[in-house]
Computed example of a mutant assay.
Amino acid sequence: MIEARSVTDRDEGSWFTISPNGLAALDVLDALGPVRALGVPTRRNVIVGATGRGLGALSLGTPLPDGTPALSFKRPRLAGALVDEARRRGIEVLDGVRVSGAEQDARGAAVVCDDGTRLTGDLVIGADGIHSAIRTAIDPDTPTGRYVGLTNFGGVTHDPTIAATLPAESWYFVFGRRAFFGALPTPTGDVVWFVNVPEAPISGAQRSATSESGWRDRLGALAAPDAGPFAGLIARGRLELAADNTYDLPSVPVWHRGRLGLVGDAIHAPAPSSGQGASMALEDAVVMASSLAAATTIEAGFEGFERARRARVERIVAVGARASSTKTPRGIRRVLNDAAMRLVFRHVVTEKSQAWMFDHRVALDPRARVVG
């Protein structure tokens, strides 16, 4: 197993939510127990407009049989804990190694690392994200990520008073006049927050030239016209993610070739608005293991995985794209959008209509062995 992040990066990055379908996949792999305590219980999304008027609320799915609801994690902490668990099970992990390509022949497959190292095996499964080097090795004409019109910022503020005013065990979302905001109170009195800004992609030069205080001043100005706690959270908080241009990957024609295959964001990256990116990757892990275990050849295993997954994941990517598009209207469209959103959350986007996404459960083929 090759991990691009080094062990020193475990506290750098944003938060995300794993809904019950993703947690169920972790549980199937006997990996939920070791990481459960890192998560903040998150049962629903509460959505309001710029004036603070409620637009709706949406459950994040039926909890697991033991009562575990969706959990929100700091991404690098969860990734680090899962790497530790892999090592505990005797799996070799190379930290801080980036892959630049892949090769194969009739006898096996290999990845080529940035430093020129070549690592060989029976097959290669790329889980290397939207800008996947393995996807390019499989298909040089593969599509690239599609910019969804939003830049992303995230941070955390220790403020037990504000945390107590927010809905418990919920993401609190605001369709603001100038941006979209989200906040999650934690049991320790922290408030995790993010800002989605509708704008052109931020350049590397702009990112390098802007200080943390400069970004926070800009985000605070975006939040100032709206009701709610975000201007104060941003002013007093610590920025942990800045100027992240948001992309999705709607459809990838070629998922595998010979001994090379793909999972996760490398083949179906939904916009963060879907809330399903990590959960989809975890489902993939279970289905890929099951497909390979049941197949007589590696390529047949990859084909079985694609048949089982393509329709579901592309439908979820489409859901994320639609959700992202609601974060960009301006002016009078903002007012009209709020009125429409109340109707949407009452009649269209409901717990029942979302059950196919959150309440889906994958199962591990008995022939796929879990290393314990």
Rank of each mutant, 00 (worst) to 15 (best):
A205E: 15
A205M: 11
Q206L: 09
Q206A: 15
Q206Y: 03
Q206T: 15
R207S: 12
R207G: 08
R207V: 07
S208C: 01
S208Q: 14
S208V: 09
S208R: 15
S208A: 15
A209H: 07
A209P: 07
T210D: 03
T210F: 09
T210H: 06
T210R: 10
S211A: 07
E212Q: 13
E212H: 09
E212S: 12
E212F: 03
G214K: 00
G214P: 01
G214W: 08
W215S: 02
W215M: 00
W215N: 03
W215I: 02
W215T: 02
R216G: 00
R216W: 00
R216T: 03
D217N: 15
D217L: 14
R218A: 11
L219D: 07
G220T: 13
G220P: 01
G220M: 05
G220R: 15
A221Q: 13
A221G: 10
L222S: 06
L222M: 07
L222D: 00
L222Y: 05
L222R: 08
L222W: 09
A223S: 05
A223I: 10
A224R: 12
P225M: 09
P225F: 06
D226T: 00
D226F: 01
D226L: 03
A227D: 12
A227F: 11
A227Y: 12
A227N: 09
G228I: 06
F230M: 15
F230T: 04
F230I: 08
F230P: 07
F230G: 05
F230K: 07
A231H: 10
A231E: 13
A231S: 05
G232T: 15
G232K: 14
L233C: 04
I234D: 03
I234C: 07
A235L: 01
A235N: 01
R236G: 06
R236A: 13
G237V: 02
G237E: 09
R238E: 14
R238F: 02
L239K: 10
L239R: 05
L239T: 00
E240P: 00
L241S: 10
L241Y: 03
A242T: 05
A242V: 09
A243L: 14
A243C: 11
D244C: 13
D244F: 13
D244Q: 10
N245F: 05
N245L: 03
N245G: 03
T246S: 13
T246Q: 14
T246R: 10
L249T: 13
L249Y: 07
L249K: 05
P250E: 04
P250M: 02
P250H: 08
S251P: 03
S251G: 11
V252E: 08
P253Y: 08
P253M: 02
P253L: 04
P253Q: 04
P253S: 08
V254D: 01
V254E: 01
W255G: 11
W255L: 13
H256K: 07
R257E: 13
R257G: 13
R257Y: 10
G258T: 00
G258R: 10
G258C: 05
R259E: 02
L260A: 12
L260V: 11
L260W: 03
L260H: 02
L260Y: 01
L260T: 08
G261M: 10
L262M: 14
L262W: 11
V263P: 06
V263G: 11
V263Y: 04
G264Q: 05
G264W: 03
D265V: 07
D265A: 06
D265E: 14
A266E: 07
A266T: 08
A266M: 08
A266F: 13
A266D: 04
A266C: 06
